[in-house]
Amino acid sequence: MLRLTVLISFLIAAPSFANGTYSNVLTYNFGMATVSVAENESSITQTDDSVQVDEEESAGGSAVSAMSFQLTYEFLHDGRMSYFVKATAPLMSGAGTGVFAGHFGFNKYLNDLGSKYTYDLNGSKVVIVPTFRYYWGAAGGIGYLIYSTESATKSDVFFDLSFHGGGSFALGDNWGLKGELAVGRTTGVATTGIKIEFFFGATFFI
């Protein structure tokens, strides 16, 4: 497939200002963020033999599932790739658990055109809006996790790396629907876990 930027060319090139741009994309998503949490075992070992320890506390496990809201802003689009920042926050969850997170990552588009393309020249204009877009990508970020064990509600700060894939369908010149699935590994101070997220929402070319 030929690159769109190469293909768009005027046969009559007027010696004046011309500008072709890919739109940035803003997405509002709602969905489920699930993190299976495993508490790290303590690395501190008993050195004082005079103290008797009757019980050893084993590492606990838990799972956090929360209906969440996600806001994503894609920028630096070149038609096939974009970078994004996104923020995730819980909306509804059991016992106040949930995941707050902020990420930075990239999307690699698998179809010809990953964003709305606009080209202006002397009052003439070409607008190309991709109907279907598919992508995969990776992201890294930090988050704050609130989870419950049998005995208490705890929290942890974590770093996570995730891979994601998704698609969107344009319903108009400036907006469409979007779905995304992400899987990642979280590594926190007190926990490690596997994160699975799926989100659906509306996406806007801005």
């Binding site: 030929l2 769109l4 293909l7 768009i8 179809n111 010809d112 055109l113 003439s124 204009k125 070409v126 607008v127 190309i128 809006v129 991709p130 109907t131 279907f132 344009a170 010149d173």
Partner: peptide
């Protein structure tokens, strides 16, 4: 370009 799956407005 004859981009499949895109709307073109000129």
């Amino acid at each position: 370009p004859t981009t499949i799956g895109a709307d073109v407005k000129l």
